[in-house]
Amino acid sequence: MSDSAATDAGIVSTARSPDGAAVWVDGLVKRYAEVEAVRGIDFEVATGEVFGFLGPNGAGKTTTINMLCTLVKPTAGAARVAGHDVVRERDDVRRNIGLVFQDPTLDAYLTAAQNLRLHAELYRLEKKVIAPRMRQVLEMVGLWERRSSTVGTFSGGMRRRLEIARGMMHSPRVLFLDEPTIGLDPQTRRSIWGYIGELREREEITIFMTTHYMDEAEWCDRIAIMDHGQIVALDAPEELKSQVGHDRVTINTDDDDAAIAALRERFGVEARVHEGAVTFGVPGGEQFVPRLFDEWDPAHPPIRSVSVSRPTLDDVFMSHTGTTIRDAEEDQAKNRNRMMVQMMGGGRR
């Protein structure tokens, strides 16, 4: 629905200028001692847009958000948020943004209302608007009745909702959500997305979020796919999917290796095992299936089932990075483990 509007506002303009954009990033780099977490990224987010950062853990999403929120100083490049420079005008940036972090940042010993009150005081809101505004944001996330309960008694989902309410308390122009639904059950995830949808209906706000859930990225007007500290693709989700140009075919066999070899020899397609099934991409998947069965040699392992699906964001991710997001994370976990083992071994010697 809003894809086209967002595309018109953001991407089509070729002359990039910092004026008017909610977020404007130019050649942003963050280098830690040995690691280059963010390797020179450029993008801009139009006012009113829901912009998503998609990528595996460790891709540089959180580092980017931290730079935009003035929590981390960029090594190089520039960024402006709500019209203010993130290095030189830190205070002005902070006044105009709301933050919901991956990890909880509530005071569990205070009540929901006390947490919001504290936030309102730190953000110096006008005294007389605090009470009505508090009611409004608490009602939005369905916690008004629980305002006098200690946050310690809240479930994970309720806490996240309260964090979103708090992030909205001071009417930020840009709301940053770092993995807003991580670790939540599907039901609560949906409700969180409900609030985000409602927010953009009601308030003039730009939402910048990170996620590594593919299905959630679909909610965004535009998404940037991030991998190894770089943006590898940036467009509306539909556009990205149509760029993939092929459908995903998944087959189940008794001998995956033999099936992969057969696919390579006879059909010239490179298949891989993903999540327990042989998977490959072909243009026109529905037309390919009859051909597959016609030409499938009886000597090959019999095919138990076939499914064809339109490209998903997973496929988009794979076509740009050569791996699925889940595999990317597993590889990283393995690397980390290997490094730890090496370090421990080195220490002992």
């Binding site: 110096r124 809101l125 608007v129 009505p132 308390m169 001071h170 409900g194 209906e201 009601r202």
Partner: peptide
């Protein structure tokens, strides 16, 4: 929440006006 989003999408204006807040 999902219900009210749907209502918003139908073009119904939000029931209560948004309280305007400003950080000086």
């Amino acid at each position: 929440a999902v219900g009210s989003v749907a209502a918003g999408a139908d073009g119904a204006a939000a029931a209560t006006p948004v309280i305007s807040v400003h950080v000086p």
